[in-house]
Design a protein around this nucleic acid. Structure first.
Lengths: 340, 340
DNA sequence: CGCCTTTGTGAAATCGTTTTCACGCCTTTT
DNA sequence: AAAAGGCGTGAAAACGATTTCACAAAGGCG
């Protein structure tokens, strides 16, 4: 029971401050019903001993862990890393810690990670998109764990949502390209399997084209993972086709950057021969040449607002259950009026 | 005490399996001294009840939290996000959870985050670089918390290190540019205040130049945060100088990309008029035109190896205390022999 | 065939807090 | 002047697991 071994405990503080553990606990938790003199003694004793509360004991007794979990596909993509950065920053202002897990876009793996989070006692979980194993959500509900979807605006009965409407974003891209006079379209989508966001963008894009009389069968869609090389090879497939598109919508800036790189290498002029629209508005959108026209995703805000939802009281949460953020079209040099 | 409220507890499993809590605990923790029949009953009971252990209680009693903390400057920079991705992936293979905090390059803020981590009971902490408040490290040591520096190869008495030698990297850049025949150098460094990595790269660069007879006073060094715009404005300052450099070493690819962008806009030819070397080898190094010559930092490996260190037993750790990873020079199009 | 391990199990103590309850004192109300 | 309430405090129970200890049964050995 040496105080120097691993540090002082609450009872040591109590002894030094000459009061009961209960009083120390009250002081530490900001309970106002403590005499000022005693309070000072406790604060000083805690400081002198270098006392750090034991979070496990605290969590066990109070059933509040001040722990939040996030399961994202990967941190290796700025769109998620930035969201998490915003989320973490806001949470830590309120002394809430964030446990991060990556799923690798695999909802079975996501379930395993979720289980681990539940075991850790997280009070809320941030998820990406709305495609999840029912068992994952059921587990959260059974344990009364609050969860929020991000990158989508569709809340469900039990899950809140902070994000944007992927279909609407796809439609916006289509509308913009249609207005530039294009008639031959293609899309390089992210992998749509188990990915409602990638699928939503594609569906919105195709539906808007269809509304303008362009049959979906006439619009080639290829899918690629979110890496430059995939963008490159996808673009190659599209441009090798007899019916070359003049406008290509990409499910992410990375894919678009790869696509433009391919054009560069092959001497295909962007935007003269083909217009390219990206998605996300990452830093790289300013590095392609020409710079990339894209749809801006408010990743950091999404994280912050998800944090606000989590930090809100249960009653406040009702008002915050569904939050749709705006997607802005950022026009740069990679798109142009179709040439005749 | 309704089982449906928040889930079953260990004692509920024991009751259903018709054995004592101790036995359930043994089964759950893989203790071999349990009869197979009983083990099966317990496993089945746990599954049927959807039992999830309470991590806080477990941690309190066993003094093992299986929690690790990481404090990084920001997640908004791929070099850190990727390291964390590797770290997390490896840790979660062993069911260890990672709490992430960002410091914003501020060692006072880092201390606050560290305190929070200690309170949570993390068993190890991953830090970036070797510049920290003494109080931060003292707190870890007092609590017997294991810590690892990353992005540096200098271990200390109490702290292990997984990373690379920033000075050596700076010297490598200098050597390479010297060998190309350059004589007029400059550097766009990251902010060196409280940042041993940025300072190390600069010092290595300048020292190697000096060894070849180039006085440090003749080498302008400007500092910028890690954003494109900073690279741009820094490059402007360098190029506006009467004594224009023909070779610029940048402390990060982001700065380099901004620098090249500036040259592009001003009609300064890269590499014909000025060679640019970056640092990190991020994805963006392939997106500048010309593509960027840079030094590759093995970010993901660093995270993985830091995880291996953390997961190792105390005796194994002795061998792993200091791990220097190699930095590779990746030559692309942004550098050339000096023109005469 | 007794003695000594080994194996499998349960009862009870324990980890470090928070929370509930009760108590004494002082003030206010009737 | 008695009753009622508020305030500050401490004793003890509780949170849900793991761990220690004890003990019975079974197996090995001389």
């Amino acid at each position: 029971m040496d105080i120097e071994d691993g540090g002082a405990k609450l009872i040591d503080v109590a002894r030094l401050a000459n009061c009961s553990p209960a009083t120390v606990s009250r002081v530490l938790n900001g309970n106002p019903n403590v005499n000022e003199v005693v309070r000072d003694r406790v604060v000083r004793a805690a400081r002198d001993l270098g006392y750090v509360p034991n979070g496990s004991a605290r969590a066990l007794r109070s059933t509040r862990t001040r722990l939040v979990g996030a399961i994202i596909p990967t941190l290796d993509h700025a769109i998620y890393a930035t969201m998490v950065d915003g989320l973490q920053a806001r949470l830590s202002e309120k002394d809430v810690s964030l446990i991060i897990n990556t799923s690798g876009y695999d909802i079975d793996h996501e379930y395993e990670q979720a289980r681990l989070l539940v075991e850790r006692g997280v009070e809320s979980v941030v998820l990406v998109g709305s495609t999840h194993r029912p068992a994952t959500l059921a587990m959260f509900e059974q344990k009364r764990i609050n969860y929020v979807y991000t990158y989508t605006s569709k809340a469900t009965e039990a899950g809140a949502a902070v994000g944007f409407d992927n279909e609407k974003a796809g439609r916006t891209a289509a509308r913009y390209l249609l207005d530039l006079g294009h008639t031959k379209f293609a899309m390089i989508a992210g992998i749509t399997q188990d990915n409602d966001r990638a699928a939503g963008r594609r569906d919105g894009f195709l539906n808007e084209l269809e509304r303008s009389g362009i049959d979906q069968g006439m619009v080639p869609v290829v899918e690629g993972a979110y890496r430059l090389d995939d963008g490159r090879t996808c673009m190659q497939r599209l441009m090798d086709d007899v019916r070359r598109p003049t406008a290509v919508f990409c499910g992410s800036d990375i894919l678009a950057a790869g696509a433009i790189k391919y054009c560069h290498a092959e001497g295909i002029a962007v935007p003269k021969e083909v217009s390219v629209v990206g998605f996300d508005n990452l830093e790289i959108a300013e590095l392609t040449s020409p710079e990339l026209t894209t749809l801006e995703v408010p990743a950091r805000d999404m994280g912050r607002i998800a944090a606000d939802y989590i930090l809100a009281s249960p009653s406040q949460r009702l008002h915050l259950r569904q939050r749709e953020l705006a997607i802005r079209l950022i026009v740069r040099g990679s798109t142009a009026v179709v040439r005749r």
